[in-house]
Computed example of a mutant assay.
Amino acid sequence: MSQDGVDLDKSLAYLLKEASSALRAAMEEVLRPLGMNVTHYACLELLAQRPGLSNSELARGAFVTRQTMNVLLQALEREGDVTRPAEAPVGKVLPTRLTPRGRRRLEKASAAVRSVEVRMLSGLTEPEQAAAFQILQSMIHSLRG
C-alpha cells in the first residue's frame, strides 16, 4: 500500500492507466513498421471519418497540442498523405483532407490496429466484451457528465 492509503493493485484508475499504456505500446509496435505512430494514425483516422477538420479539431481528437498537430500536418502534407489549401476558405481555418495515398496508408494502419484490438480482447467472451464496452462508456460519461 502506498503512503496515501491507495493500493495500486486494487485501484481501478491505476489499472485503466496501465491498460491504456499497454494498448498504446502495442499499437506503436505495429504502426512503427508502417512509418507511423499512434498520433499519426489517429490524425488519418479522424480525417477519414470527418474530412475537412481543422488543426485544432484534429489536435483535440488526437489528444495532442495544436503545435504538435501542426508539425504532424506539415509532415503529412510533405509526404503526400493530406492536402490543405494554401489559404483558408473562411477565417483562418485550413481544412485538411486525406489524399488517395493517405487513404491507402490508413487502410494498412487500421488493419494493424485492429489486430491489436483482437489480441487485447482474445481472453474475453463476446458477452464480456460487450459488458466491458458498456462499463467503459459509463465511466467516461460519469467523468464528463
Rank of each mutant, 00 (worst) to 15 (best):
G80F: 07
D81I: 06
D81P: 04
V82H: 03
V82C: 09
V82S: 06
V82W: 02
T83I: 12
R84G: 13
R84D: 07
A86W: 09
E87N: 12
E87S: 13
P89Y: 08
P89Q: 12
V90E: 15
G91K: 13
P95T: 13
P95W: 06
T96H: 04
T96V: 15
T96D: 11
R97L: 13
L98S: 04
T99A: 04
T99C: 05
P100T: 12
G102A: 12
R103I: 10
R104V: 02
R104Q: 07
R104H: 02
R105S: 10
L106V: 02
L106A: 00
E107D: 15
E107N: 14
K108D: 11
A109V: 02
A111M: 05
A112T: 00
A112F: 02
V113S: 00
V113Q: 05
R114S: 09
R114I: 03
R114Y: 11
S115E: 10
E117M: 12
V118N: 08
M120N: 05
M120D: 05
M120Q: 09
L121T: 10
S122K: 15
S122C: 07
S122A: 12
G123D: 06
T125G: 04
T125M: 00
T125R: 07
E126S: 14
E126K: 11
P127T: 04
E128F: 00
E128M: 01
A131M: 07
A132H: 09
F133A: 04
F133D: 11
Q137W: 06
